[in-house]
Design a protein around this nucleic acid. Structure first.
Lengths: 166, 166
DNA sequence: ACAAAGATAGTTATATTATAACATATTCGT
DNA sequence: ACGAATATGTTATAATATAACTATCTTTGT
């Protein structure tokens, strides 16, 4: 897998996002001896259907549609817990929603731009942001374990036009 | 009110935090023609009882103890909504909890260190952090409306000893 | 191949967080 | 004092998440 520019806010062939994410997930789980079961993979695919974070119950509804059996909340939450543990997805706490991680292979913080209009999320990869947080923590004597940065506002598209899909 | 160093993780006379916060709240609400009613002030005081973010239902329970009448959730959430609107408190989304703002007089983002051990929260005031986020947004063409940074880990005290109160 | 152990998924119930909708009371401007 | 606006009380319910127990599947050692 080559390096990728963030493209949630850019026109792109989304099927590549999905296939890359699934391929990466399979590779990572195989390497770690973690089991990417059918349900877990289904949830991951549903999350990757767009760059818009999805809530647990939205995922549940979509799972239920595709299934003959009824689907209960624990099914979804367990799959989400697994995907979070494996860092295949991120949780956006401010909106109780989940989004696919475009580069689960290397460890990183959860930093996002979130468009209030179209709902899309784009991961931020800024050495400058990461380093300044690290520096502030060091100065405060604070030992960082995890972090999330959620920046809300308008994406480039929505600043100038009306909202849209995908 | 003079400039204050962040001190949630530092030994300090906490009564000053409370009185400063209340004084500032009164001043701000007066200036804005906003009504800091009895309930709103009570909730603000409860939030300021420590530097640990408190959940809505924890606040509700404490309100109920002090009151003869039963207290229902909307009472608390309305007070919280008011205090959030006036920027007298911040919401920590990752833990569904609320914490007092030590300098509600000037507008600012919600950036916090949160100790996993003792539960205390300290606001981050780092030009470097703010500027790097602003810069990343500009580069991405993203128009920032609001933001929250929640950094979890161990505070200076808890890195070296066991957790404690206040 | 088989049984035991461990991990995953099904199922039911419930906890936790938050809001809707409508009635009542209080405050503010005139 | 009066009406309008704001705030609070009250009841019900929505939305998010987990506990606890059962059943099934997968792996592993023999």
């Amino acid at each position: 897998m080559t390096d990728k520019e963030p493209l949630a806010f850019t026109r792109h062939n989304h099927s590549h996002c999905v296939s890359d994410a699934l391929q990466a997930a399979v590779a990572i789980c195989t390497e770690r001896g973690a089991r990417l079961t059918a349900i877990r993979q289904q949830v991951l695919e549903l999350i990757w259907q767009s760059h818009k974070p999805l809530g647990a119950y939205a995922l549940l509804d979509q799972l239920a549609e595709k299934s003959t059996k009824p689907v209960a909340p624990p099914t979804v939450y367990r799959a989400l817990d697994f995907l979070l543990e494996q860092k295949l997805i991120h949780r956006i706490a401010a909106i109780n929603a989940f989004i696919g991680c475009p580069h689960p292979d290397h460890n990183h913080a959860s930093h996002f731009f979130l468009c209030d209009d179209c709902g899309r999320a784009e991961e931020i990869h800024s050495k400058s942001v990461s380093n300044s947080i690290k520096k502030a923590a060091t100065e405060a004597g604070f030992a960082v374990q995890s972090q999330s940065l959620e920046v809300f506002g308008l994406c480039p598209d929505c600043r100038t036009q009306d909202g849209h899909d995908s």
